[in-house]
Write a protein that binds this DNA or RNA. Structure first.
Length: 433
RNA sequence: UCCUCGGUAGCUCAAUCGGCAGAGCGGGUGGCUGUUAACCACUAGGUUCGAGGUUCGAGUCCUCGCCGAGGAGCCA
């Protein structure tokens, strides 16, 4: 049975046939008696060639009057052509104009500033570069989920609205929830821990929100986070899972997204290197290395952005930084068995200066120690009743991590700024479109 | 929140020491039978972010404000 129209990506296999394509006119050139209609339908692009002497006069005139991004239905013969990027062109015999814009299309062929592009994000997404990024984002998410699914993980989503505060009150979006305060989730982890006690191997995946007023190329106020949580996994098994997941994602992107990576002019050599084993540095080793390289970050402090960049430049693949000082990390992390000033945690830093893509830890599973950490941090004890219950009814060694999807997309795509990794980026001064 | 930079045509940007506001793209008109950000010719297009100030004269200097970007801290 014939489909009523054909996707542009399928045209190479329809050579010699007359087909109809539905899409948009993303550019047009004309040489007097030949129009070259550049068509786009979301699946691909193709050039429609309309020769004046081969079509009715009025059709040629209609085509000439098309504005960019007109929606059209084009009928033509699929013809092999060496000059075409996809190998085929369409010899146009019919054209139905679905809608011809009455204004010029705002996004031109020359460069635009970032402010203008973000104001026109709804149109910017149509450009080939943005299409490539979104296809790679889709691939990364798809592969992350199938990897976990195939390894026996259960998706147990966490709430977006919450009354309890995850990691401390700063950076939370607060809103009215009938007669009480609610907060937008900044992590699903605490819920994932509860789910792990129910199902063993779980993950949650959803949007998370940070109200911090950060203005950098690696921050969004809304971003998607993948958070596996595994019962009876310790610190080491946790890092091993992270390594396998990241390697799987990168390998599959290289396998399926070559055209997109080429469009982005991404040098794939650093991605080819993403294979086990990743490098590991203990926090103290990282500080020593940084001091040798000229950093002045004192032992005991968290690593700065510049520090992370310096460190990743020393390695040809992602690097784990393990066991940070307790005082710079969250209350729920498991105390190091050999050094009570440290915790069993890890940050995974992507190469080429992209920095932290994963933060993970073994969780504190001792009731009394967790409670005293909550008190030390002056967190509202009553909000953690249910979380403490997990340590009361069959406590268990468990570990997990959070992977920021946009950070991974930015790294894999080689983007200068994380905002291009999200279809609708939310930053401190930008809520629309 | 702090530091730095910027705001000139629809868009991207020029404008020397404070001295006639200019180019490319896009638009319009015409030309071109293989264009690839097509090309060629002509053409229209301006409250130089706003409010004050200095000056014979301000896009340019000063003050305040608004908007945006880059970075820091924090984090994924």
């Amino acid at each position: 049975m014939n489909a009523p129209w054909t996707a542009i990506k399928d045209l190479p296999s329809a050579e010699g046939q007359e087909v109809t394509v539905k899409g948009w006119l993303y550019n047009m050139r004309s040489s007097g008696k030949i129009h070259f209609l550049q068509l786009r339908d979301g699946s691909g692009t193709v050039q429609g060639v309309m020769v004046k002497q081969d079509v009715p006069e009025e059709l040629f005139v209609v085509a000439k009057g098309l504005w960019l991004e007109a929606s059209v239905e084009v009928t033509g013969m699929v013809r092999k052509d060496e000059r075409a990027p996809s190998g085929v062109e369409l010899t146009v015999t019919g054209l139905v104009v679905l809608q011809n814009p009455t204004d010029e299309y705002p996004i031109g062929k020359k460069d635009h500033g970032i402010d203008f592009l973000l104001d026109h994000r709804h149109l910017w997404l149509r450009s080939s570069r943005q299409q490539a990024i979104m296809r790679i984002r889709d691939r990364i998410i798809w592969e992350a989920r199938s990897f976990l699914h195939d390894d026996g993980y259960l998706l147990v989503d966490s709430p977006i609205l919450s009354g309890a505060v995850g990691e401390g009150a700063s950076g939370l979006f607060e809103l009215d929830y009938f007669d009480e305060k609610a907060y937008l989730a900044q992590t699903g982890q605490l819920y994932a821990e509860a789910a792990a006690a129910a199902f063993g191997k779980v993950y949650c995946f959803g949007p998370t929100f940070r109200a911090e007023k950060s203005k950098t190329r690696r921050h969004l106020t809304e971003f998607w986070m993948l958070e596996p949580e595994v019962a009876f996994y310790g610190h080491k098994e946790n890092m091993d899972l992270q390594e396998r997941l990241v390697c799987h994602i990168v390998a599959r992107v290289l396998e399926h997204c070559r055209p997109e990576l080429r469009m982005l002019e991404r040098d794939t050599t650093p991605l080819e290197n993403v294979k086990p084993p990743f490098h590991h540095l203990q926090y103290g080793e990282a500080i020593d290395m940084l001091h040798r390289l000229g950093s002045e970050t004192p032992y005991g402090s968290d690593l700065g952005n510049e520090d992370e960049t310096i460190l990743t430049q020393q390695f040809d693949r992602p690097v784990f930084i393990e066991c940070y000082p307790k005082k710079v990390k969250a209350f729920y992390m498991k105390e190091h068995p050999e050094n009570p000033d440290l915790v069993l945690c890890d940050d995974l830093l992507a190469p080429e200066g992209y920095g932290e893509i994963i933060g993970g830890s073994q969780r504190e599973d001792d009731y009394d120690r967790l409670l005293s950490r909550i008190r030390e941090e002056k967190l509202p004890e009553e909000a953690y009743d249910w979380y403490l219950d997990l340590r009361k009814y069959g406590t268990f060694v468990h570990s997990g991590f959070g992977m920021g999807i946009e950070r991974v997309v930015a790294w894999v795509c080689g983007l200068q700024h994380i905002r291009e990794a999200s279809p609708w980026p939310r930053t401190i001064y930008r809520l629309n479109p």
